[in-house]
Design a protein around this nucleic acid. Structure first.
Ligand SMILES: [Mn+2]
Ligand SMILES: [Mn+2]
Ligand SMILES: [Zn+2]
Ligand SMILES: [Zn+2]
Lengths: 135, 135
DNA sequence: GCCGAAGTTGCGAAGGACTTGCAAGTAGCA
DNA sequence: TGCTACTTGCAAGTCCTTCGCAACTTCGGC
């Protein structure tokens, strides 16, 4: 549920649509704009898809949500608090597994040391074959 | 330049368009379908974009090219031989740097050991801030 | 509480990036 | 040389995301 103050505190106006979009992202864990819209429509049937897109962008600008790429195209949205894990996406079966960010700590450190590159490991999924499909 | 035999050897028919698409991918290093089309048009002005898409797909199916995601959307194509490095994409300035695959060896090993996940580190770029933009 | 400026919404239309159907053309094998 | 399966160009069609705009809210000030 979106607390009214957190939106106002970020300098955003409080509209039912905006609260609902944020709530939906939190409830869904990660979701495409289309899925967010569908979820919001459960309580607010009239919401327009473009309103969902606009609010996702606005919420991302103030850091309340963030997007990730799990598949070959588009984006999926997470609540910012939730971005504490990596996504392991299987190229074969499409499954999305989680791994703690720490699993990449070493890698991130290497890139920082050797290239001065500050890696955001959550923006793109980690792509490959899941344990089940390796066999 | 695409050697005629390598296409035939993969069971593909040899068309000028197909050879040119493969050559273009090799010359460009990594390129979007649009960029490949533009490159091909230098010697074969009439080539249709859909022919480029179809051939990229065909060439990917037989393993001569491969696609990667460097940006937030679409795909860019590489010659299969060239996929020996990671891409470090800067979220700020958009630059695309390279790093040897080995930089991720440790990470890949971790995921294999802990999750049985076989990682393809080249499919998605490594996203973050380049050294210049970190400052 | 009421007002007005600025921000937001819904809707329809536009964009951009592929994908598809199809008729004409071509490669490759006999 | 001929046949058949594969390819191509072209036009149209999808799918996903963004825009323009008029109507409508929100919210700080009065
Ligand atoms: Mn992909
Ligand atoms: Mn992105
Ligand atoms: Zn799998
Ligand atoms: Zn940069």
């Amino acid at each position: 549920m979106a607390d009214k103050h957190e939106l106002r505190d970020k300098g955003l106006r409080l509209t039912p649509q905006r609260e609902l979009v944020l709530s939906a992202v939190r409830e869904l864990g990660h979701a495409t704009p289309e899925e967010v819209a569908e979820q919001v429509r459960a309580t607010h049937p009239g919401i327009n898809l473009s309103t969902v897109y606009r609010n996702l962008e606005t919420l991302e600008n103030v850091g309340l949500v963030q997007h990730t790429h799990l598949g070959h195209g588009g984006a999926t949205y997470h609540a910012a608090e939730e971005l504490t894990h990596l996504h392991l996406v299987c190229s074969d079966c499409g499954s999305v597994g989680d791994a703690p960010i720490g699993a990449a700590a070493n890698f991130v450190q290497n890139l920082a040391d050797d290239y001065g590159f500050k890696t955001d490991v959550t923006h793109f999924a980690v792509y490959g074959l899941c344990a089940a499909c390796v066999k």
